[in-house]
Design a protein around this nucleic acid. Structure first.
Length: 630
DNA sequence: TTGCTGGTTGTCTAG
DNA sequence: GCTAGACAACCAGCA
């Protein structure tokens, strides 16, 4: 056999430290190794990405590229601008490749992509080597050890993980890299499918990213924000493996912080510096290995003389949650990120339900406006002008910096869904997908399901207050003053409920509480709250109770064919099927009706069926992993 | 089958 | 300022 000529395909593993896949490539002792990154149109056009996350990705790529060049002056991260499914088969031939090596990626799209690429490699006689390194344990093995079921609790994850084996220790970064070979491009570029472009409204200029496979100068350079048509990012958080390792080092040097960390006790209102590690964006891009993170922390915990915290609240516990969501996604595939067809996700007839592609059954990113009022609430939530300063501060920090504290995410997610607006969690999930630096499809969908009490968590009566919760952490409202400068000079006793401030106090603080935040917002004003929270909380709670009693899940026939309407008191309220346009107009203000009529309906149903468990409808068992036995 | 316990991260009020 | 208990009541796992 000829000497190995290896393509190492970087994807969500933009690092040199602790990369089992890169080590596997080097173990081949190749004569030639091309470190490449394919600029994949799927992520550029079909996944939502805000400016801040694009910048963070480019930071990670640049840092990795410099690190590669430090090991071999002839090498760097070579970026090729074409979909990997079409590009790699051409490269196999053009570069006379013998091996393709990459880290396993269990995201729904990534699996499909990698299957296509792997088949093409096999047809070209190229050996494919894949190693797991993105999670503590291989997610597919976790699922297998969880009886093929998605991991829906930390205890399930821990039990399955223990059966898979011990978490591998990190391996060192390589000390040398082989030369890259010739990089002839004697083939045509397959142009990307540009439409639909979910990121078009963020581009200030036209996207020239696909002008040439090797970039505008033909040197396989890393993309720039200008090349992609994006204006500058606004986040102060920068990416790259070197920053990640420095930050991790600083964290574990503080033994007390590392060993006694308890997530629920960290302050969501703390800023500059934040109360948590801010390492999640690095995990997302693979600029930091999760196993490296785990063992660096665990070693501190093991040697800590005092009482250390333990999972799930400890630092390593946070990583377990990440693995739990990854394994749940690995088991369920694409439907994990939506209600429809997801057997583990409860059906709640939220406002603003998603439209679905009738062919694939997957949500399209568009939604039905079943209530103009709910749509206005959603737009105000998204823009950070709800009139609730705690919520608005968080949403503005998210938009500006791409990061908010986990408990802040809880606050705004609860507020949008079961604890305020009664808007579909998929709407919030999409906004987070766009804005979060650390957006991880599995964790984002899982956390939205958790907070909306549709999966993982069920205590819907525990509801975050948009006023009291922030106040309990930050009595003076410094966090609000930082992000909602309109209220900067308001007295602390009014800062979380500015509408209660007498007009003289508003005048003294230089602010007037008026308007809806969306139309004709005048300088020196802050909007009125968009609803009476106590009332709206009661409406939501009652509606949740009703939906729990009915007990539908995303894969129930009644959910998929729209017949769920006959089971709910207000049958025209919302539509998760997305296939019917009926009932999509103007039903604002019916929430209260839902809650009061819901009680009657529930009691009728109970008396007919005898028990709540029997009330759960069961239509076909295929694919049921979470509630088939009910 | 029944009953109990625990579940990363709620709020409010009385004492 | 702190704590305990009420609020209203979910699910999964286990004995």
């Amino acid at each position: 056999m000829s000497e190995p000529r290896v393509i190492y395909w970087f994807r969500t593993d933009l690092r040199l430290h602790d990369s089992p896949a890169l080590q596997a490539a080097l173990d081949l002792d190749p004569a030639t190794l091309w470190p490449i990154f394919t600029w994949d149109p799927h992520y550029v056009y079909r996944a939502r990405g805000g400016l801040n996350r694009w910048q963070f990705l480019l930071d990670c790529q640049n840092d990795l590229s410099h690190a590669i060049t430090r090991l071999n002056a002839k090498s760097k991260l070579f970026v090729l601008r074409e979909a990997p499914q079409t590009l790699l088969p051409k490269l196999f031939k053009a570069w006379n490749v013998t091996h393709l090596v990459f880290e396993k990626d269990t995201d729904a799209y990534a699996r499909e992509r990698d299957e296509v690429v792997t088949r093409a490699a096999q047809e070209a006689g190229v050996e494919v080597i894949v190693r797991s390194g993105r999670t503590l344990w291989d997610s597919d093995q976790v699922v297998a050890r969880n009886n093929g079921k998605p991991t829906m609790s930390i205890s399930q994850l821990q039990a399955a993980g223990a059966k898979v084996g011990s978490i591998p220790r990190p391996i060192p970064a390589p000390s040398r890299l082989p030369d890259p070979g010739e990089m002839t491009l004697d083939f045509e570029q397959d142009p990307p499918v540009v439409q639909p472009d979910l990121n078009s409204d963020r581009r200030a200029e036209s996207d020239t990213g696909y002008g040439q496979i090797a970039g505008p100068k033909g040197d396989f350079a890393i993309e720039t924000m200008e090349e992609l048509g994006f204006p500058s990012a606004t986040t102060p958080h920068r990416g790259g493996e070197s920053i990640a390792l420095k930050r991790l080092g600083d964290i574990v040097d503080n033994h007390t912080y590392t060993a006694t960390f308890e997530k629920p006790k960290t302050n969501p209102a703390q800023f500059e510096p934040q109360a948590t590690t801010l390492l999640s964006p690095f995990l997302h891009f693979g600029a930091l290995s999760v196993r490296e993170f785990y063992w660096r922390v665990q070693d501190v915990v093991d040697s800590y003389p005092g009482k250390a915290s333990s999972p799930p609240t400890s630092l390593t516990g946070q990583l377990l949650f990440r693995d739990m969501y990854f394994a749940a996604q690995a088991a369920l595939g694409s439907v994990f990120a939506q209600t429809a067809r997801n057997p583990c996700c409860r059906f709640i007839p939220w406002h603003l339900p998603s439209k679905r592609d009738p062919d694939t059954g997957l949500i399209t990113g568009e939604y039905h406006v079943d209530s103009e009022q709910a749509d206005a609430w959603f737009r105000r939530w998204k823009a950070g002008v709800t009139g609730f300063p705690w919520i608005d501060a968080l949403m503005r920090q998210l938009r500006q910096e791409g990061w908010i504290h986990h408990l802040g995410r809880h606050s705004v997610a609860c507020f949008l869904t079961r604890g305020g607006c009664y808007v579909d969690w998929e709407r919030g999930c999409e906004v987070f997908e766009e804005l979060l630096l650390d957006h991880e499809p599995a964790c984002n969908a899982g956390n939205w399901q958790w907070l909306s009490c549709t999966a993982f968590f069920a205590q819907y009566y525990r509801c975050y207050s948009p006023t009291a919760f922030g106040q309990s952490w930050d009595k003076n409202g410094d966090f609000v003053r930082r992000w909602v400068p309109e209220l900067k000079h308001l007295e602390a006793k009014y800062i979380y409920e500015p509408w209660t401030a007498p007009i003289q106090n508003q005048r003294r603080a230089g602010v007037r509480i008026t308007g809806d935040g969306l139309t004709r917002r005048e300088a020196g004003t802050y909007p009125k709250p968009m609803f009476d929270f106590a009332k709206q909380k009661a409406v939501c709670m009652s509606a949740m109770k009703k939906a729990y009693e009915i007990g539908l899940h995303g894969d129930d026939k009644a959910v998929l064919d729209g017949s769920w309407r006959s089971l709910f008191p207000s049958p025209d309220m919302a539509d998760v099927t997305g296939e019917s346009e009926s009932g999509a107009e103007g039903r604002a203000g019916k929430n209260r009706e839902v809650s009061t009529r819901g009680k009657r309906h529930a009691s009728e149903a109970s008396s007919q069926d005898g028990s709540k468990k029997q009330m759960r409808l069961s239509f076909g068992k295929q694919g049921r992993e979470c509630h088939a036995s009910k």
